[in-house]
Nucleic acid binder design. Structure first.
Lengths: 136, 136
DNA sequence: CGGTATCCAAAATGATACTG
DNA sequence: CAGTATCATTTTGGATACCG
């Protein structure tokens, strides 16, 4: 069968990893998982914590992550409603990955100036938009 | 000075991390970096190693990663042309992150069956699939 | 509050052809 | 071989309406 050498990963390893990448490559998934790695979040908290994401996308990404068994959704029968999201046992295994990423960024992030990049992160001036909105 | 507590990262930490996420959230970036983490690859090698990616996207993602200082592009003045991609010093710091991810997947990946997911990974019959696959 | 549904615009990605 | 140019399709963004 497929051997998983610990160093110098072989081909089958790449095939396996592909599923993991697909599972995490949504546009906001890494950020969502990063937040949940730190603590349980409510829907609204995630929305506030992720500038630029829409309700629509947040909802969609959360449902995908849930379907992939990475997070757990808990609905509290209260008024007003409360829904909490937290990592599943499996996803908690991603902790070391998250920490390693944070460590890397802490070390090199500062050395990578505001650089170009940031594509797909543009968001129009929200404060200015609400001002003049009318016919459509 | 932003405080970076080691456990329970604070808010500023999240803001910092956002840039890292944006840098890696392209649809194929994690996979590309994973491959380059293992060894230098030529353009064509990456294309073969990443089923489903198009020249267009591979080229685009590589240019973005290069712009973000994560990989180095080396063109050899030969015939036929040869172009090699490798991680930069900074990006090599991502090694532990990659390894942690691989370790996680090795541990839990198997427990997450073929699951639904795979959205955005659908690719129309890429010839290779058509051959009635009976072996397993 | 925490969604889902809809419609439309914009951005990202895919397919195919073509070039140095 | 390693791309780019162009056009098509898919995904995501944004606003609004509506519901439990």
């Amino acid at each position: 069968m497929k051997k998983h050498t610990n160093e110098g990963h072989d081909f089958s390893m790449q095939d396996e990893m592909r599923r993991a990448f697909a599972m995490l490559s949504g546009k906001w998934k890494l950020e969502i998982m990063w937040l949940l790695h730190q603590r349980i979040h409510r829907f609204g908290e995630l929305r506030k914590a992720i500038p630029g994401i829409t309700q629509h996308m947040l909802s969609a990404q959360l449902r995908e992550l849930e379907a992939d068994g990475l997070l757990l959704r808990t609905v509290f029968a209260e008024v007003p409603p409360r829904v909490e999201y937290e990592m599943t046992e499996k996803a908690r295994g991603l902790g070391p990955t998250m920490e390693a990423l944070a460590a890397w960024w802490g070390e090199y992030g500062s050395t990578i100036p505001a650089r170009p990049s940031m594509r797909g992160r543009k968001q129009k001036d929200l404060s200015a938009v609400k001002a003049s909105r009318q016919s459509k």
